[in-house]
Design a protein around this nucleic acid. Structure first.
Lengths: 126, 126
DNA sequence: TTACTAATGCAATTCTGTTGCAAAAATATG
DNA sequence: CATATTTTTGCAACAGAATTGCATTAGTAA
C-alpha cells in the first residue's frame, strides 16, 4: 500500500484525533477544526488514515461512526480487537485497550476485522 | 414497558424477520413487503419491536443497520451477546448464536448492551 | 357502540456520506 | 531550482437513511 501524502489537513486531523481521550465523530472533528478544511476533505483524510492503520473506525449501536487513534499498533501488527465503550448518557466512545474479548468462530469463517462495542453508562456518568 | 398494539404491519414485519436466515436491513424489509406499508411505518414498527425485545439491531462496520429476530430469549432474560458475522462479499449478516464472547470490563462501567460484529468472508463465499 | 389512544401515511426535512471536476498543493524528476 | 506529474482539496450537486409534524385511520377498552 502506497503511503499517502503529508498534507496540512492530514497532520491536523491526526493530531485532533490523537489528542482526544475519546473517539470522535466526523462532525466533532469538523467542529474542532472549525472551518480549517472542507467536510469532504475530512472524510477523505479519515479514509486514508484508516488505510494506513493510523486510525480505526468504531460504529456504535445507534449507528454513530467514530474514529480513534491506533495505540499499541506497530507497523506490522494491529490490535483493534479491544472493546469500545459507548456511553448512553454522554455519548462518548472510549477505547478500552486493556480488554480484548475472546471468542471462537467456526473455522469456516474467515475473519478480517472486528468491531466490539458495549453500551451502557460510563464511570463519569454513574 | 407497555406492550404496543398488534397491527397488521407489525405482524407482517415480525414474520418477515423471523423467516429470514440472515439479518435484514430496513430497505430489504421494505422491498420484501413490496409496498404493503410505508417506509416510515417500518422504522416505527422496528423501534417498537426492539423495545419489546422481539428483535435486535446490529450495526456493521460499514454503518449498515440490520435487524434480526431474538431467539433464545425468554421474556425475562435476553441473550444478545452473541457474535454477528458480516460478510464482505455477499453483505449478509448472520447471528452466530452459539458463540458468546467473553470479556471483562472494569466494574465502574455499567453495561446495558453489547454489539459484537466480526467481518470477513462467510462460508458461502469462501 | 362509542370513546380514547396508538399507529399509519404522506410530505417535508435533516443528517451523513459520496461523486465529479477544476484548481491547488505535494512530491518526483531533470 | 524549475518543471512535470500525481495527489489532494474545495465546491456544488447528489444520494440514501432516518426523523418529524400532522391529519387520518385502526386497535383496544369501557
Amino acid at each position: 500500500m502506497k503511503k499517502s501524502r503529508n498534507t496540512i489537513s492530514k497532520t491536523k486531523i491526526i493530531s485532533v484525533i490523537t489528542d482526544s481521550k475519546t473517539a470522535l465523530s466526523h462532525s466533532e472533528i469538523h467542529e474542532i477544526l472549525d472551518g480549517f478544511c472542507d467536510r469532504v476533505t475530512i472524510y477523505r483524510v479519515l479514509d486514508r488514515l484508516i488505510n494506513e492503520d493510523l486510525v480505526h473506525k468504531i460504529v456504535t449501536i445507534d449507528g454513530v461512526v467514530k474514529y480513534a487513534a491506533c495505540h499499541n499498533c506497530s507497523s506490522v501488527e494491529h490490535h483493534h480487537n479491544h472493546i469500545h465503550f459507548s456511553c448512553e448518557q454522554c455519548h462518548t466512545v472510549t477505547c478500552i485497550e486493556e480488554v480484548a474479548p475472546s471468542f471462537k468462530l467456526p473455522k469456516k469463517y474467515k475473519v478480517h476485522n472486528v468491531n466490539f462495542t458495549v453500551s451502557g453508562v460510563c464511570p463519569n456518568c454513574l
